[in-house]
Design a protein around this nucleic acid. Structure first.
Lengths: 113, 113
DNA sequence: CTTTGTAGTTTCCAAACGGTAACCAGGCGG
DNA sequence: CCGCCTGGTTACCGTTTGGAAACTACAAAG
């Protein structure tokens, strides 16, 4: 008797596809908004909170850490008093700007929900 | 005694911002993948299931309905036997392609998780 | 020594989301 | 008449997510 074909295919990790991988990062709540407000230059934690009023500090921290881990954003502590923290887009982060521009453009033309 | 400043500001709808509005549509699971596979032309329900193996029929239906509602995708029933259904990008949907291209490019350069 | 400002952290919780599995309808081929 | 194909729908359920509120650390100003 012939061997059965094993159907339990190893599920390839979701990070295999570049599209899925990148969406896993920028798909979270407020992520693209954060990148959008960093496009013009470095910005501090509390400035981002003012830029995006509905974001909670917890979520802002989470997003910034994720973006830093993936090399999209860099974090720099300035020895002011009190010490402040500047976030800015890395070179990789800059590459997302045209994509986000495109999303904004479509958002403007999109039917209301 | 002076009147207090009322702090309960009317929370403007999340759809006010074009970026947030568009992300609400393309942020769902597999949404960008669906658009990606429609970029080359019309595609049927079952073809999309083969293109994106891990997507469930429930989610694929949900995504296609959302995209249709927002004018990104159009749905056409062909009188074949059995009747088949073709989905394709609208003009608005086509405008998302460059944005998704950008996301893919960043995804390729992104650090592993 | 209390207040102010920056930059978070922690806990708790309800709602949203997506996965699984089963089921359905209409048409046709055998 | 039975199964099969396409294109879904439905019910159930566990996990994840993001929101709210309260709390922390540290430094300097007053």
């Amino acid at each position: 008797m012939a061997l059965k074909v094993r159907k339990n295919k190893s599920p390839d990790p979701p990070t295999a596809c570049p599209l899925t991988r990148c969406m896993a990062v920028i798909g979270g709540a407020w992520t693209v908004n954060v990148i959008w407000y960093l496009r013009a230059g470095p910005r501090r934690f509390s400035e981002l909170r003012l830029d995006i009023p509905p974001i909670s500090p917890k979520v802002l921290t989470t997003r910034l850490r994720e973006l830093e881990d993936r090399g999209v954003v860099s974090r720099a502590v300035k020895p002011t008093s009190p010490p402040s923290v500047e976030y800015s887009l890395t070179e990789l982060g800059q590459e997302l700007i045209p994509a986000i521009d495109g999303i904004v453009r479509v958002g403007q033309k999109m039917k209301a929900p």
